[in-house]
């Protein structure tokens, strides 16, 4: 059994200093979205709800884009990272 954190640790990333992911309106997460499905559907566990904040571990984003279309309130602003940054597969 391999844990997600261990898998991500062994996958190669070069994170940009600036996040390429933004929650558009945190109040939408707080007030309208009890399920926080982004914390479920992201294959890299980038999203974590902590108290009343969304922690975004953009450094470990696999850039699949599921969150762009999966958020029920279109409340995630996801862009391609700066060229040359982000995930860098060794095999792919």
């Amino acid at each position: 059994m391999t844990k997600l954190d261990d898998k991500l640790y062994k996958t190669r990333f070069l994170p940009s200093e600036k996040s390429h992911i933004k929650i558009i309106d945190l109040d939408v997460c707080r007030q309208k979205c009890p399920d926080k499905v982004c914390t479920i559907f992201c294959p890299a566990g980038v999203y974590g709800w902590e108290e009343d904040q969304m922690a975004i571990g953009y450094e470990g984003c696999l850039e699949c884009g599921t969150c762009r279309y999966g958020c029920p309130y279109d409340n995630i602003d996801w862009h391609n990272p700066q060229g040359g940054f982000g995930v860098m597969y060794k095999f792919g």
Binding site: K7, T11, P43, C64, T66, G92
Partner: peptide
Amino acid sequence: FLEYSAHL
């Protein structure tokens, strides 16, 4: 284990 990846 060597690598984990995801795609839509």
